[in-house]
Simulated assay, not measured.
Amino acid sequence: MARAIWTGSLSFGLVNVPVGLFSATQEHEVRFHQFESGTSSRIRYKRVNQDTGEEVDYDDIVKGAEVDEGKYVMLTAEELAAVEPGKSRTIDISDFVEASEIDPIYYQKAYYLAPTDDTAKKPYALLARAMEKADRIGIATFVMRDKQYLAAIRPKDGVLILETMYFADEVRDPKKELENLPGRTSSRGKDITMALNLIDALSASWNPKNYRDTYTERVEQLVKAKKKDRVVVTEGDAEEAGEKAVDLLAALQASLERSKDHRPGNTHNLGKLETRKREITDVDLGDLSKADLIGLAKELDIRGRSKMKTDELREAIEGVRNESSRAKSRRAG
């Protein structure tokens, strides 16, 4: 079972519900360690005194706030705790608002709220049901890990979800931060109509299962391939932004034509690549010229193909289709 990363009370008027805060999401990135190049020696980091070079124990470290250039005031954990807002173990709902009024840019990270004991279940369920019926989101503040958070609390299927939020002064003004933003430009009616048609053709119902972290998957494939000393199939080289100037209307028309086979999600191109791998299974690579091999390697997105010799190209392509055959056998088994 998951362990609460924070415990306290959810305050709703004069009602206090004992709750725990649990992470609602988890990232699935590949984690790397650092090594000195050419060795298997791990790189380690230590907390050291910059003047003496000696390592400092964690318990002997205090926080310092810079007040002038090169000048600091030191603050202990006890001093910081003393200035925390009152009821620091309370998530205090102060307002209820409509979800549509909140710009998503303010949201940070999602957590689940759960009652910590049996006595909290009834008021917890009451609050969740009332918020569902009212169709409102609770806005609250609370302190966690020496930081005050603004939070939005919403019900979903009987569970209260807390999303930490940025305060207003933490969201940057794009007009002050970004250059070359377009002004109010006039667009041709035909351009707008074509763009609307393209949006309509690419529209779909939201389903998070349609989308995968294909980059992490390919990194995992790379790790497995390197472990077995095999060739790695990679994405094609990215086109440089601004490489070509294109006619907007022509681009919209071409995009609309391509959208006829649109399927929701970001993984349908992976299926096309697998299909092409299967198609080349019976090709006799010995009968192909180097130019043909480079063309085939390009279709299979084999990186570094332009620098490979003829035998290296054959070996790389053979490695790809062997891997495809093994994957097919595993699926069949």
Rank of each mutant, 00 (worst) to 15 (best):
L178N: 09
K209F: 04
D173E: 04
R172A: 12
E179P: 03
P174W: 05
D200Q: 10
R184F: 15
S186L: 11
F167N: 13
L202R: 08
E170W: 04
I192V: 15
P174D: 04
S205C: 08
R172Y: 07
E170L: 12
E177Q: 13
E177P: 02
A168Q: 14
S187W: 14
L198K: 00
E177F: 02
S187I: 08
P174S: 04
D200K: 11
G189K: 04
E179K: 04
T185Q: 10
R172L: 15
A168C: 04
S203V: 08
P174T: 01
K175Y: 10
S187D: 10
P174I: 02
V171Y: 00
I192D: 06
G183L: 11
R172V: 02
N197T: 04
K209E: 08
G183W: 02
S187R: 06
F167T: 09
T185C: 08
M194P: 00
A204G: 07
D173N: 01
L198I: 09
N207I: 11
A204H: 15
S186D: 15
N207L: 12
P182A: 06
M194N: 01
E170C: 09
S187V: 06
K190C: 04
L202F: 03
A201R: 00
E179M: 04
D173I: 01
K209W: 07
P182G: 05
A201L: 02
A168I: 13
D200T: 13
E177S: 09
L196D: 07
L178P: 00
A201W: 00
S187G: 12
